[in-house]
Design a binder for these strands. Structure first.
Lengths: 131, 131
DNA sequence: CTAAGTGCAAATCATTTGCAACCAG
DNA sequence: CTGGTTGCAAATGATTTGCACTTAG
């Protein structure tokens, strides 16, 4: 229970190891434990919340209500496998001119976008319709 | 407590009144109550689940973990006001050719897409930075 | 000392499930 | 009767909060 445990830093270190692209809260907590710096779930939540505020992390809301987090970096979109739930990054699929046009058509100011596609990953694709 | 209360039908009726574009579970439950056909939350959840299965409704997952539902119809994307949480529909912002290209580049099959933009609605836009 | 960060337990919120009662065919 | 539907209560799972304690500045 080292009190001088800077949880947000530990979280950032963990995600920077690049073991995975996007993390669930549980994966983050588990990752910290494996690294020997276990932290309480509430502390991890607080750390992530802080890192989001500081724009070090971004929240990725999958369509099914689950949430993952990833390092903030250059923008990209996501595809999620409807079969095995894998998540992958894609180059951005929304274009500036279209956003500009949407702004004009709608009267809104558009600040950001996040796209999550549903799809089949290469592996699940092979298995076709079987279950 | 009229047992011959077909909750899914009631929900569909409610949403078809067109009072709003997208509904939270609470709004649906409240709407039913106002219409005199109150139903248990669990029944509403079951009804919505069923309507989703039947493709009568679609789930809209906002980026902040909240969920809304809307009548299934022709596809459209959404913008959400980061200030007042209003939600509006937009013409689709993702183009087939881009999806096709993403499929080729990634090896995934893309089945569907949902886009939720962050923005400022016309009203909040006027208030500028004030709070 | 003071403010921020932390662990632990308890609370909250949204959604789901178990189960007995109920209605249509 | 039989199966699908419903209300109610209890269970779940994810996230948040209260609180006492601790450490850096």
């Amino acid at each position: 229970m080292p009190r001088p445990a800077r949880v947000p830093d530990q979280v950032l270190d963990l995600l920077r190891q690049g073991t995975r692209h996007a993390w669930t809260m549980e994966q983050i907590a588990a990752g910290l434990q494996q690294a020997g710096r276990q932290a309480d779930f509430s502390s991890v939540y607080r750390a992530v919340e802080r890192l989001l505020r500081d724009h070090c992390l971004e929240r990725v809301a999958l369509g099914d209500g689950t949430t993952q987090y990833e390092l903030a970096g250059q923008h990209h979109d996501h595809v999620r496998c409807v079969r095995c739930q894998a998540l992958a990054a894609l180059d951005c699929l929304v274009h500036e001119p279209d956003l500009r046009a949407a702004e004009r058509a709608s009267g809104w100011s558009i600040l950001a976008h996040r796209v999550v596609l549903d799809g089949l990953c290469p592996a699940c694709r092979q298995h076709g319709g079987e279950d």
